[in-house]
Amino acid sequence: MIELHNRQDEDLAFMLRFENVAWYQDGMVRILDRRVYPVKTEFVECFSYVDVANAIKDMVTQSEGPYSAAAMGMVLAAYEFRNETDPQIIIQKLKDAAFTLSHARPTTSEQMKGIVDGAVKVAEDKLKEEIIGKQLVDELFQYAYGYMNDNYRRYTIIGKNIADLIPDNGTILTQCFAGTVVGTMLRECKRLGKNVKVYCAETRPYYQGSRLTASVACDMGFDVTVISDNMPAYTMKAKHIDLFTSASDVITMDGHVVNKVGTFQIALAAKYFGIPYYCTGTPDLAHPDMSSVEIEERNPQQVLESFGQRITMDGVHGYYPAFDVTPPELITGIVTDIGTYRPEEVHRYFEDKKC
């Protein structure tokens, strides 16, 4: 029986609880379908690591979810190969699984590699101890749980750091779904007694802001309002927004932020109104600048419909870049687990981390 100690998801919203993000049990990974939540609470059941990779690719889970799913997907891969006894074959199959999971979506593949390669390293070490079969599955589950818990622990610190930047009785604007950061930030605001109001841009075509961010804020007892994606600039002035915040899919070492498309235009409006924009996350050594980042373009058909309903005339074209790039000059600070950096100083993060 594996014991799960010091859980970092306590007091967070339903959809941020580990079992409701991505969870391995008895030869299956269950992933909360964030494409339909909260209108429906449904789980996608994956019986192979390829199923998990497809779920990641198909946007079943977003924000921190794909990383947790990839970690649990490696557990499922070990389960699939549980009857194999040759260590070399086991490792090769796990490496194949790691590649498939990490490359499910191109923009975040470098961050994914660290997670799945860590699982392969655990397997290599355990195989040297002649641990195979169900025991190896258990070891990789322990690794996946440890990754999720440590990730939440790190984001608890980030959540506290950004909560400190929000004024008492402040009003914030969010973009897309910052996942664990939103939950930990609001948990800290509640602890501090800050009566924060939240405005969420809806974030078409998946509506992560309206369905996910707003659900987390509401579930945790906060005053939350949804606006459509063409309303942020007007809302900033009309509702006296104090702070704009988003997560990040990539932070380059020279301070560019890659995040859900629409972030750049909100940052432009924030700059115009003198509203600070704080991005959360950590810089990525694999991306020294934007030349190494591939911006994913998704199925343009999704722009031509809403919840499966066609909204344009036949013959109209769509265009769907999943991310955009916000340059350093529009970013007030990048909030990390060891402090807040000006974007031009973010390269210091790893030096400071060693101290």
Rank of each mutant, 00 (worst) to 15 (best):
M1P: 06
E3V: 13
R7K: 11
D11Q: 11
A13G: 09
A13K: 07
F14Y: 12
M15C: 05
V21N: 03
M28G: 04
R34V: 01
E42I: 13
V50A: 12
V50G: 01
I56R: 03
K57I: 04
Q62M: 06
Y67T: 11
A70D: 03
A70Y: 03
A71W: 12
M74T: 03
A78M: 04
A78W: 00
F81G: 02
Q88C: 01
I89Y: 06
Q92T: 12
F99I: 13
S102F: 03
R105A: 07
T108N: 04
M112P: 07
I115Q: 02
A119K: 06
V122K: 08
E124A: 09
K126W: 05
E130L: 11
K134W: 05
Q142Y: 04
Y143Q: 04
A144S: 15
Y147F: 14
D150K: 10
D150Q: 14
T156G: 15
K160F: 11
N161F: 10
A163P: 05
D168L: 07
F177G: 06
T184E: 14
L186H: 04
A201Y: 03
R204V: 04
R204A: 09
P205R: 08
Y206V: 09
L212F: 02
T213G: 09
V216Q: 13
D223W: 02
M231R: 10
P232S: 08
P232T: 01
A233T: 07
Y234S: 12
D242G: 13
L243W: 09
T245F: 13
T245A: 01
A247T: 15
D249N: 15
I251V: 14
M253P: 12
D254G: 09
V261I: 15
I266S: 13
L268E: 09
A270I: 05
Y272E: 15
Y278I: 03
T280W: 01
T282E: 14
P283C: 11
D284A: 14
D289S: 14
V293W: 10
E294R: 05
E294P: 02
Q302G: 03
Q302R: 13
S306G: 06
H317L: 12
Y319M: 10
P327A: 05
P328Q: 06
L330V: 06
T340D: 05
P343Y: 01
F350L: 00
